[in-house]
């Protein structure tokens, strides 16, 4: 019985060790990808600096109000591991707001023009009212964008930034996502190590007890 128990513990130890090795291998792979992405980001940032000027891409350009556009959700799993996942505020919404703010100039001018023509027939007024009601919802997002100071960090460095800076931004965005995955893997590796260590200690105790039992048998 003792031997089969020992075999079982050895098998589970092997399984844990293999899982640990797999995790380390995956961690190494992701690390390599992260390093190459960061390098790519720096290279394109240097290109942007070359075209914009040395002082144009530096810490001096950071905005006075900075709002995070990405956050990370940490979820503790049952086995003690922590799962990190990133969530990003979509920039498409913001660009949509920009477009609307330009379009909003139209209704304002129309309102002024209508005041000059008060004696229009009712049907045209109704048509105008309908048009106004249709355009009314477009006003609200502009108000929201005024309240929300979130801004694309690219704009800190100018309105017309070179393509290379945009490429640098996209590289770093990928790095951020990858770093959350690496953080998850790191906690998994540490957790596996803890498990493996405990299993090894258990096995040592088991080996000692079985060998003691065998010695007793031999002595008898």
């Amino acid at each position: 019985m003792g031997i089969s128990e020992l075999e079982e513990s050895s098998l589970s130890l092997d399984g844990k060790l293999l899982r640990f090795m797999d995790q380390l291998e995956l961690l190494e792979e992701k690390r390599a990808t992260l390093n190459s992405l960061i390098e790519q980001g720096w290279f394109t940032m240097s290109k942007a600096r070359y075209s914009m000027g040395n002082k144009q891409v530096s810490a001096l350009q950071y905005a006075s109000e900075i709002e995070p556009l990405v956050c990370v959700h940490a979820r503790t799993l049952d086995n003690g591991e922590v799962d990190f996942c990133t969530e990003r505020v979509t920039q498409s919404k913001e660009s949509g707001k920009d477009v609307r703010s330009i379009e909003d100039i139209g209704p304002q001018e129309e309102g002024v023009r209508r005041r000059n023509k008060p004696q229009k027939d009712i049907t045209e007024k109704e048509a105008n009212d309908k048009a106004e009601s249709q355009k009314a919802p477009e006003v609200t997002p502009v108000k929201r964008s005024d309240q929300n100071p979130q801004q694309d960090p690219l704009k800190w460095f100018g309105i017309l930034v070179p393509q290379s800076l945009k490429q640098a931004q996209s590289s770093f965005k990928q790095v951020i996502e990858l770093s959350a995955e690496i953080a998850t893997l790191q906690t998994a590796v540490l957790n596996s190590r803890r498990e493996l260590r405990n299993s090894m200690k258990d096995k040592h105790v088991l080996v000692k007890t079985t060998s003691a039992a065998q010695m007793d048998k031999v002595a008898d």
Binding site: I66, P68, Q169
Partner: peptide, 16 residues
């Protein structure tokens, strides 16, 4: 360093 911080802030992690 400056480039690392600038890169990650470009990525949108910064907060004041």
């Amino acid at each position: 360093d400056e480039d690392t911080c600038t890169g990650f802030l470009l990525g949108g992690v910064g907060e004041l």
